[in-house]
């Protein structure tokens, strides 16, 4: 599903070159659930941005569902973000002043999808928020907001869901609930990549990629798939 070959990203900070990514080779198979962990400055955010097609690598190749997307133009990247990638952010990033349903619809509207409303309602059902469809974000709790954000991420049926510290702004109990949703989506066949610095969140994932200084330091594979967490 995802394969990178020798990804390099460099930043010029005050005259000296910092290697945010240094020859990163990574492969994520369809249906996998992967955590990327590492301290801040390890390059995990940069990797996330490139995998999410928000940024382009300086060198290397990035194949998403077989297509080399490393060198595509801005509009093509926007299309790929729209159709093949679902984002879940630490701060939810729902648009204020419009309802949950309208938030979930948004990616479909950018495609000009004919049945956006129906699809968005279904996505809200999947995360168990059908009854909050007409609430605006400020009327929802943090956990509910993140579930709306997940619904928005899955509504286009993307190849991969990228979650950047999805539980970072939630209390631990709600965090567990959110991870339970990710685990369930993964069991239904979705590929999920979670960036986190919390070991117990990473533990929900079958594979854990640990980064340090722009390099992949080690890949830990759980011997058995982790038990789906129980929210209660």
């Amino acid at each position: 599903m995802i394969r990178t070959v020798s990804l390099v990203k460099e930043y010029n900070v005050g005259g000296s070159v910092v290697h945010a990514l240094d020859q990163v080779d990574l492969e994520i198979k369809a249906g996998d659930m992967v955590a990327i962990t590492g301290p801040s400055g390890s390059g995990k955010s940069t990797l996330m941005n490139i995998l999410g097609c928000l940024d382009r690598p300086d060198k290397g190749e990035y194949y998403l569902a077989g297509e080399d997307v490393a060198k595509l133009g801005k509009d093509r990247l926007a299309e790929i973000r729209n159709r093949r990638i679902g984002f879940v952010f630490q701060t939810f990033n729902l648009l204020p002043r419009i309802t949950s349903l309208e938030n979930v619809e948004l990616p479909l509207l950018y495609q000009g999808h004919a049945q956006a409303k129906v699809r968005a309602s279904k996505a809200l059902e999947v995360v168990g928020l059908a009854d909050r469809a007409h609430h605006e974000p400020n009327q929802l709790s943090g956990g509910q907001r993140q579930r709306v954000a997940i619904a928005r991420a899955i509504v286009t049926d993307p190849a991969i869901i990228l979650a950047d510290e999805p539980t970072g702004n939630l209390d631990s109990r709600t965090g567990v609930e959110i991870m339970a949703i990710f685990a369930r989506l993964n069991q239904e066949g979705r590929t999920i990549l979670v960036v986190t610095h919390e070991a117990d969140i990473a533990a929900y994932c079958r594979r854990q990629v640990h980064m340090r200084d722009g390099k992949i330091q080690e890949i830990h594979v759980a011997s058995a798939p982790p038990a789906p967490p129980s929210p209660n």
Binding site: G52, L54, K74, D75, A78, E79, R81, N82, R83, F87, F89, N93, L94, L95, P96, L106, P107, Y110, Q111, R152, T156
Partner: peptide, 16 residues
């Protein structure tokens, strides 16, 4: 700005 970032992340093109 943030809203613009979100819109771009979920697939809005520059012309959108």
């Amino acid at each position: 700005t943030r809203e613009i970032g979100v819109r771009k992340a979920i697939g809005a093109k520059e012309r959108d």
